[in-house]
């Protein structure tokens, strides 16, 4: 019994001795600031995937699709490709306004013509600025069939 008591006290002492003040680090003041994600510019379609299969080469004009994004507004270039805002389930629109679901860590883009709001998922995270790639994931007619458009700037 005395040995157990002695052992317990020794271990407790060792644990207290081992405690030390936490190291402190200098953090840049601007590192803690969230920046609004910026995607303004002209995006050109680079590849099209349907249910994970690259079908870009099956559509010769696929890479002709452009998406012009400015502060709060967007314009689609003419194309023979679908886009979430062009589905015939509603009145299609090729220009309008847009917004992120979260300006700082967006996971989707909302395209709207003022009446309809089309939510399109981002296929990959975006940087705060200087983004050169952007992926959009969406479905068109058959909800179970998904498309991924990879744009480059």
């Amino acid at each position: 019994m005395r040995n157990i008591l002695f052992l317990t006290m020794t271990l407790s002492l060792a644990m207290f001795i081992s405690c030390d003040e936490a190291d402190s680090f200098d953090v840049r003041q601007d590192a803690l600031v969230d920046y609004v994600t910026e995607i303004n510019g002209t995006w050109t379609l680079h590849s099209v995937h349907r249910d994970g299969t690259d079908i870009t080469s099956h559509m010769p004009s696929a890479t002709g699709l452009t998406l012009q994004v400015e502060a709060g507004s967007f314009t689609l270039g003419s194309s023979n490709l679908p886009f979430p805002t062009l589905g015939n389930a509603r009145t299609p629109f090729s220009s309008g306004s847009w917004s992120f679901d979260d300006d700082y860590q967006p996971t989707s883009i909302n395209f709207t013509n003022g009446t309809d709001v089309i939510v399109t998922s981002l296929a990959m995270p975006l940087y705060a600025s200087n983004n050169s790639s952007m992926g959009l994931t969406f479905s068109m007619g058959c909800g179970a069939t998904s498309y991924q458009y990879n744009f480059k700037k």
Binding site: R50, I55, L81, P82, G87, N88, C142, A144, S146
Partner: peptide, 14 residues
């Protein structure tokens, strides 16, 4: 054909 789950004519079809 389109995706594994079918298509409507709003989809890209092959």
């Amino acid at each position: 054909a389109a995706g594994a789950n079918g298509y409507t004519f709003d989809d890209i079809i092959t």
